Simulated assay, not measured.
Amino acid sequence: MASFGSYVAPVLVATATATIVALLAERHFAHGRGWLHRGFLDGAAIGSAAAIYFLALTKNPSSAIDPAIVDLAPGLRADQIPTTPERALSLVPFGEIGDLLSNSVSASVPLSQIGGNAVLFLPLTLALTARLRLPVARGVLVGIASVVLIEVLQFALGLGRVSSVDDVIVATPGIVLGAVLGRLLGRQRNSSSGPTRIRT
């Protein structure tokens, strides 16, 4: 899963909400301005892709020994310092989610982790579906393929993150919502940019 601090998930939710609101507002007020519509969608796609890279494709700090821990506990051997392996794979559905719910000290931890991963791919799926005018099913497939690609890269690059089937499960509701909203925006664009019929 992508690593979310206690503050990152609310920021991500706010970003996704702001993206949807901005796109809806642009669709309503910018009739006939195709370049503005495309600019909003391209910006949303680039911004969400950057967020995904930062949260899911950067090195996990806990995969290496933190010198600060060694300084605080000089008598601690290196093999006694908890670290995350560079490559970890979880193929049991809901296994990682169950561990997160049962072993977390605070309820905010699973909330931020699961909630953050649930909306992580929503803006990207929304933007790509609307920009490419994809059907909902294709938008969902693009979103799920994006999650699978991220998990493969996490494992291949040895980023110290767990490549988990639960990431696909958790991200799917947000992907579906993004594809539906993106399809609605695409339809509105088609109807607003179509030829004007003159009644005779």
Rank of each mutant, 00 (worst) to 15 (best):
L124I: 04
R138C: 09
F155Q: 07
D167V: 12
G143A: 00
A127L: 08
E151K: 14
L124Q: 00
I144E: 00
G139W: 10
L157V: 07
L153V: 15
S146T: 14
L149R: 09
A145C: 12
V170C: 02
V142H: 09
G158V: 06
V142T: 15
R161W: 00
L157G: 03
T129S: 15
V152S: 11
D166R: 10
L132M: 07
V136Y: 03
L153E: 07
L153P: 00
V165T: 13
P123S: 06
E151A: 04
T125R: 14
A130M: 14
V148C: 01
V168D: 01
A137H: 11
V152A: 12
A127H: 02
A137F: 06
P123M: 07
F155A: 08
I169S: 01
G158R: 03
V136S: 09
S164F: 07
L153H: 10
V165N: 11
S164W: 04
I144W: 03
I144R: 01
R131T: 06
V142S: 12
V148A: 05
I150P: 04
D166M: 12
G143D: 01
L126R: 06
V168I: 13
I169L: 11
V140Y: 04
P135S: 15
S146G: 06
T172A: 13
A127T: 14
S146Q: 03
I150G: 06
S164Q: 05
L157E: 04
A127G: 15
L159P: 14
P135Y: 03
L149K: 12
S146A: 12
L149M: 14
I169Y: 01
S163G: 01
A137P: 02
S163N: 00
L149E: 01
A145H: 06
D167Y: 02
F155C: 08
L157F: 02
S163K: 00
L128F: 14
R138L: 15
V152P: 05
L159E: 11
E151S: 06
V136K: 08
T125S: 03
V168N: 05
S146E: 00
P173L: 08
G139H: 01
D167C: 10
R138A: 14
R133P: 05
S164D: 11
D167F: 04
R138I: 13
A145I: 13
G158Q: 03
V170T: 11
D167K: 13
R133W: 02
T125Y: 10
V165A: 14
D166E: 13
L153Y: 04
L126Y: 01
I150C: 09
G139S: 08
F155P: 13
G174Y: 05
V142L: 11
T129C: 05
Q154I: 07
L157Q: 04
R161G: 08
L153F: 06
V142G: 12
